[in-house]
Computed example of a mutant assay.
Amino acid sequence: MNEVIATILNHRSIRHFEEKPLTEEQIKTIVSCAQAAATSSNIQAYSIIGVKDQERKKKLAELAGNQSYVENNGHFFVFCADLYRHTLIGEKNNKNVLPSIESTEKFMVTLIDAALAAQNAVIAAESMGLGICYIGGIRNNLTEVQKLLKTPERVIPLFGMAIGYPAKIPDQKPRLPFEHIYHEEEYQQDKNFYLNQLKEYDELISNYYDKRTGGKRKDRWTEQIAAMLEKQNRMYMRDFVQKNKLDLH
């Protein structure tokens, strides 16, 4: 196993960071690695906003559900779907690009591009001995996040990423079994096979929480996910995206 694979397999979310900012060189390296990710037809349909200002980070933490690690970290990045620059490209070249830019397909491209770039950033950061935590909570109130970050039309903040020096490293949370994720040739639809694997995974996760909390938690994964999905969350998103002139067709 080489160092890159070892770094990837060692991933875990870090929620406690030392009070030590990232250097400009570290920030540039992380962003450059993000930019090196694959991008659909070289469209590069994303942007990254770095947040250093403590008051702005504090406000983002509040908007994200009062998550302290959004405020207290080495540096905070916000990954955005971005087709604003492509609107300008159309104007510059006197081409009608709006039907394409406003399509569901191109919106999906922005999401995929941003996710690929973000995961490159994660691997780069973790290879440097840093820890990371993705922050989906910034989508709790995107209108206020947009105001805070002053994003133009057709730019949507998708998720944040707290990066810094780990002050506390948790145990690694077990993932679903390999066989449950990887399908050979065609999708495995044996319901009993699925349910048996989910039962085994429930036991694994329950034991993980039991050990991690000293017996205070014994949650099962399927119970967690069912409870989470039962609650309707951020249901404004489609209207918000379309208000920003994306995913219209």
Rank of each mutant, 00 (worst) to 15 (best):
N141S: 13
P170Q: 04
T143C: 08
F159W: 10
G160A: 11
I135F: 04
E144F: 01
G136N: 12
R175G: 05
L158K: 03
F159E: 01
K150M: 09
I169M: 09
Q146G: 03
P152F: 10
I135Q: 01
I156G: 01
I156S: 00
L130P: 02
Y134S: 00
I169F: 04
R175H: 14
G164D: 06
K150G: 04
N141A: 11
P174V: 10
C133S: 14
I138T: 07
R154W: 08
L149N: 09
L158I: 13
P170R: 10
N141C: 11
I135H: 05
I169K: 09
K150L: 03
P157F: 14
V155G: 06
D171N: 15
T143M: 08
Y134R: 04
C133D: 01
I169W: 05
L148C: 04
A162H: 05
P166G: 10
V155Q: 03
A167G: 15
D171K: 15
I132S: 07
P174T: 10
V145P: 06
G131S: 05
L176M: 14
L148N: 11
F159Y: 15
Y165W: 10
R175F: 04
E144K: 12
P174K: 14
G164R: 00
V145H: 11
N141M: 09
I135M: 06
M161E: 01
D171A: 15
K173A: 09
N141L: 13
A162F: 02
K173M: 14
N140F: 10
R175C: 04
L158H: 07
L148Q: 13
E144M: 06
I163G: 02
I169V: 15
T151E: 08
L149P: 04
L176A: 12
Y134N: 03
G131L: 02
T151I: 07
Q172H: 08
R154A: 03
G160L: 09
N141V: 08
E144A: 15
Q146H: 06
R139S: 14
G136H: 11
K173N: 09
R139D: 05
Y134K: 03
E144R: 07
N140Y: 08
Q172N: 10
Q146N: 12
L176D: 08
G164E: 02
N141H: 14
L142D: 02
M161C: 11
I169G: 02
P174H: 13
I169S: 10
I156L: 03
P174R: 10
N141E: 12
G136C: 14
M161Y: 00
R175Y: 07
L142P: 01
L148H: 11
M161V: 10
P157M: 11
L148S: 09
I132Q: 04
T143D: 15
T143K: 13
G136S: 15
R154Y: 07
L149Q: 12
